[in-house]
Amino acid sequence: MTSGATTTQTIGFEIARYLPGEDRAPTLRHYDVPYRPEWVVLDALNYLKDEVDGTLSFRWSCRMGVCGSCGAMVNGVPRLMCAAFLRDYLPGPIRVEPLANFPIERDLVIVLDDFMQKLRAVKPWIIPGDRPPPADAEYRQTPAQLADFKQYSMCINCLLCYSACPVYQHEEEFLGPAVLALAQRYDHDSRDRGNSQRHELTWSDEGIWDCTFVGECSAVCPKHVDPAGAIQQAKVESTMDWYRSVLWPFGRR
């Protein structure tokens, strides 16, 4: 243990509190938490909830970066609280606020409705089309076909990318990074035949064309999905399709 860590007995937290019906706006409240180098922000919040204030509200489940439910703004940057170690924020204080760009239900709990509705809209499931299923009822994929979409399938819907996206902040209609990356995931799946159903939405002005490639969605993504790259690729594909349909108007492919 470094000397800096041993001399720090506690670490300060500034946590956004909001109780609907009581508070007019979220306010930051100060807490002191025992410092443990192996603790993450989520551990500190659970300590506070157990030992100091049981009304502190936040979502969490797996504690290991898989469930995607503990996203929050940590010192102004969207992070999974289970992956944000206290030792990286010395000497503190650590400011914890609900994910930006979403309405606040209470304390650190945000309203997910907008995202859920957009997610459903792009049909994030395999659409088999009218092909008969394989005779042995098993779709085979080569490793290369899997590699074509695997990266996008790693998304855990944690919404950090939406919090990092200034376009989504100002254009509520924008489908947003994760939804567009997931649409790309199914577009590129060799088993799927639903492209044309999705493109009506994803290739529209509220889809990929609202994105100006700020790139912060990819910078904050804990699963290296790279939504910004997915959207850029979709722009290339949509553009090639546009020129194909103009230069070859007699039926597509």
């Binding site: 044309s196 009506e200 529209s204 064309w209 949509s238 553009t239 546009w242 020129y243």
Partner: peptide, 15 residues
């Protein structure tokens, strides 16, 4: 399908 005109601008921008 309502097509966005953006591919035209975007391809020229990219070129």
């Amino acid at each position: 399908m309502r097509r966005s005109p953006e591919p035209v601008f975007w391809s020229l921008f990219s070129a």
